[in-house]
Simulated assay, not measured.
Amino acid sequence: MSTSSRTALDIIRAHYAASDRGNIDGMLVDMHPQVRWTEAAGFPYAGTYVGPEAVARGVFARIAHDWEGFGFHLEQLVGSGDAVVATGSYRGTCRGTGRAIDVRTAHVWKLADGRVTAFEQFTDTLLVDRAVGTK
């Protein structure tokens, strides 16, 4: 199946499936070279990362280093055209403190021409901060 025949929902489902398998290359495969990936203010990896490599280094590698069993547990995907919203929860245990989280989260995705062009995270950063020991 070519990228152009997949819907935005298909592409985001594939991203989460790759994440569940721990396949970072699979998570990055449909990202535009200039993707803008925004982690929420107050989140340990807060900021906007531009490009798949910046996302891999600035977000995914840091999560793998800092957390045991971290994952986004998808509950619902809603899409309209080239926009997708995912709701679910982050779960995992902070390696530095041994504290676990189960935090409600939403992701907003934008796509163009079968590529992810933007991602924005919404989550309860206070609960995450408490787990990492900064609050």
Rank of each mutant, 00 (worst) to 15 (best):
60 F>I: 04
34 Q>S: 13
1 M>I: 08
10 D>R: 12
81 G>C: 02
40 A>S: 14
135 K>L: 14
95 R>F: 06
16 Y>V: 00
89 S>V: 14
98 G>D: 09
99 R>F: 01
48 T>M: 04
129 D>Q: 14
30 D>P: 04
58 G>D: 03
73 H>I: 05
4 S>P: 03
111 L>K: 01
76 Q>T: 14
88 G>A: 02
16 Y>S: 03
58 G>R: 08
131 A>C: 10
15 H>S: 00
32 H>L: 00
35 V>G: 06
26 G>E: 07
20 D>N: 13
15 H>C: 03
79 G>L: 07
101 I>G: 03
108 V>G: 06
133 G>V: 07
104 R>K: 13
23 N>T: 00
91 R>Q: 10
71 G>C: 04
30 D>E: 10
107 H>C: 09
4 S>K: 13
39 E>W: 05
29 V>P: 01
118 A>W: 04
115 R>L: 14
41 A>Q: 14
128 V>D: 10
100 A>Q: 10
55 V>E: 01
76 Q>V: 13
110 K>G: 01
96 G>W: 04
81 G>V: 02
78 V>R: 06
76 Q>Y: 14
131 A>Y: 06
63 I>T: 15
110 K>S: 15
95 R>C: 07
133 G>I: 02
116 V>M: 14
125 T>G: 03
89 S>P: 00
73 H>N: 09
22 G>I: 08
26 G>C: 12
34 Q>Y: 00
93 T>Q: 09
101 I>Y: 02
49 Y>K: 12
17 A>P: 05
72 F>R: 05
88 G>D: 02
110 K>A: 12
115 R>E: 15
122 F>D: 04
65 H>I: 09
112 A>M: 05
14 A>W: 11
17 A>I: 07
120 E>S: 10
54 A>L: 04
25 D>V: 12
89 S>T: 13
62 R>F: 06
49 Y>M: 00
